[in-house]
């Protein structure tokens, strides 16, 4: 019903229309927004958590929070950006909890880390054997290095490199000063560079 109404108006306006209806408690309108943004949020959450199950949970949590907090959405940023911020914060909380749990159970952490290797499931885009070999090597090193980054460094790097977010926006999402966000990106790049340069940087 709502999808039919929404299809008749331009995309940007249809999102505004849906948001307005969500503010009034319209669940069908909310479903339209879920359909529009779920996949992009999954990519972000997957990169931060490193596994599909956690990423899916984080997407669900994001939409639940968005439903509760829709009154706070003031339209200054796009709705997608607002959702990305919520998703980043949900995932950060999740990662911190996971980190605390792992710190208390180091042996279990080591075993599980291998299973949830964010890059172990990833294949290179090109089928050529050389590319696959290099990609596999890069992936393995990336995996180990990203796992060693602090939650802040990892998140800042992912937002900068994969989400194309500027330092200013990253600092807003992380709730830190722009200088701190910038240094988190620098530190992440520095560590990745040290690790990857032997195979990728020369």
């Amino acid at each position: 019903m709502l999808n039919t109404q929404v299809a008749e108006i331009p995309a940007a306006q249809s999102e505004e229309f849906a948001i307005e209806r969500v503010r009034r408690g319209d669940r069908d309108a909310f479903r339209v927004l879920v359909d529009q943004h779920a996949r992009a949020l999954f990519r972000l959450a997957y990169r931060m958590t490193g596994n599909e199950i956690d990423a899916e949970d984080m997407v669900q949590e994001t939409f639940l929070k968005a439903w509760k907090q829709i009154a706070k959405f003031d339209g200054r940023a796009s709705f997608g950006t607002w959702l990305h911020r919520i998703c980043t914060n949900c995932t950060l909380d999740h990662l911190r909890t996971r980190q605390r749990r792992q710190e208390t159970q180091p042996a279990v952490h080591a075993a599980k880390e291998d299973q949830s290797d964010p890059l172990s499931q990833i294949a290179g885009e090109s089928p050529s054997p050389e590319r696959l070999a290099l990609s596999g090597q890069v992936s393995a090193i990336l995996s180990a290095t990203l796992a060693d980054l602090t939650v802040m460094e990892r998140t800042a790097f992912i937002l900068r490199h994969y989400e194309g977010m500027g330092i200013e926006s990253i600092s807003n999402v992380l709730g830190v000063q722009p200088g701190a966000a910038k240094h988190s990106v620098f530190r992440a790049v520095q560590k990745l560079r040290q690790a990857l340069e032997p195979v990728a940087g020369k």
């Binding site: 879920v34 899916e56 997407v59 669900q60 992936s139 990857l196 940087g201």
Partner: peptide
């Protein structure tokens, strides 16, 4: 070169009905 190499890390494409699954949970 180093940072471009990070682009090798692609994300697995979720299933076509991914958002339906999310909605079912939400």
């Amino acid at each position: 070169k180093t940072l471009n190499a990070c682009d090798e890390w692609t994300v697995p494409e979720p299933p076509v009905d991914f958002s339906r699954g999310i909605w079912a949970g939400v």
